Amino acid sequence: MSQTATSSQASAIEALRQRAYKIRRNSLRMGEVQGQGYVGQALGVADVLAVSYFRALKLDPKNPEWEERDRFLLSIGHYAIALYAVLIEAGVIAEEEIEDYGSDDSILPMSGMADYTPGMEITGGSLGHGLGIGVGMALGLKRKESDSRIFNLLSDGELNEGSTWEAVASAAHWKLDNLIALVDVNDQQADDKSSTVLNYEPIADKWVAFGWETYRVDGNDLEALVEAFDSAMQSNSDKPRVIICDTLMGRGVPFLETRDKTHFIRVDENEWSVALKQLDEVYGVQ
């Protein structure tokens, strides 16, 4: 690789790093407004969202319903605060909306609902349905001879749902190479660790067995994510693709990274400002 190419790649990674920082900061600011929110997941998945929206997706921030756009489906509706954060950073949603997060009549409800929020493609409250919807959308795009893609973010906990695996089988059957599933593996769900409730390993082997082109990466390593996304998008295979992303809840805020993990990380009133300060320090922002 030439020095120019190496420098260009380093610049691209740094730009994504700054996007991820702003996504994390937007998430914390919204959490502070309500004093709660799934900020642990938002901090963990921020790097995946940064690469999705600022490396992979084709979209028009001024026209979220542009017919030729790629569709990003949030199957895990309780991650809405994370998706709002990236939609704000992408310019789809105005930054001022942060102050109304979770309030009555806000376009940013606590759980994602498509009717309320620009750029929110589906309502993903009940887990296990998003990938099935994605299969239908991807098949529809195929039949319209569109070159748009479907990206579907789901969680390790959703792998407990039989409907998810029905969708996985269907996507392979229909050779939906325009569908890219993103699995956030943070090993947490409502009742316990995901691996304790129903062990999902060997997770990559399962997707391969179902006929998917499969990648597994550290979901907080931007270089690894870029390589996986680029490979998935440039592949000539007729298989659907899945990128399995191992993430750390609370990533970017040291005291939340080390806090005992549960599905809903508690942040006390006096800790929001500490979290923002630590995030700024991690990213070298004064």
Rank of each mutant, 00 (worst) to 15 (best):
N160Y: 15
E67G: 09
L256Y: 01
G140F: 15
D184F: 02
Y79F: 14
L108M: 13
R143P: 10
V208W: 06
I76W: 03
G157W: 13
Y215W: 09
R259V: 10
L28V: 10
S75D: 04
G125K: 07
M113N: 07
D70Y: 11
A5G: 05
V168Y: 02
G140V: 15
L57W: 09
I133A: 11
V168W: 07
A50Q: 14
R69H: 05
F151T: 00
L248R: 13
K277C: 02
T123C: 06
G136D: 12
D191I: 12
D47Q: 04
I76R: 07
Q18K: 10
A190S: 01
F229K: 00
D187K: 04
D177T: 04
S52V: 10
E67H: 11
V197I: 15
G91K: 05
H78I: 06
R266Q: 08
A50S: 15
Q278F: 02
V168E: 04
E161N: 13
M30D: 06
R55W: 06
V274R: 06
E68C: 01
V135M: 08
Y101Q: 06
A50C: 14
R25A: 07
K261S: 14
D184H: 02
N236W: 14
E121L: 13
S27N: 10
A138S: 08
V274M: 08
L83P: 03
A46Q: 05
G128N: 14
R71C: 15
C245M: 04
R251G: 03
V242C: 05
E161P: 13
N26T: 05
L87E: 14
I243T: 04
S75L: 06
S237C: 12
I122V: 12
I203L: 10
Q286M: 07
C245P: 00
Y53S: 10
N220C: 07
V168M: 07
A190I: 02
T6C: 02
M110Q: 01
M1S: 14
P240D: 03
V242Y: 03
A232V: 03
W207Y: 09
E96T: 12
R24E: 01
I133C: 09
S235M: 15
I81A: 03
W272R: 02
A80I: 00
E166C: 12
T214W: 10
F229I: 00
Y200H: 08
G31A: 08
Y38E: 00
L179I: 00
V208T: 11
T4N: 15
R266A: 11
A224R: 13
E201V: 01
F151L: 08
P109H: 06
A181I: 02
R69M: 03
A190L: 01
A56H: 03
D70E: 10
D268N: 11
I23K: 05
S106M: 13
S231R: 15
L131Y: 08
W174G: 01
F72H: 09
Q3K: 09
E97T: 14
D221I: 03
A172F: 02
A204L: 03
V274Y: 03
V48S: 04
F264N: 04
G91S: 08
V242P: 07
R149K: 09
W174I: 00
V197F: 09
Q9P: 01
K261Q: 15
T6I: 05
R266V: 11
L276H: 07
G37L: 02
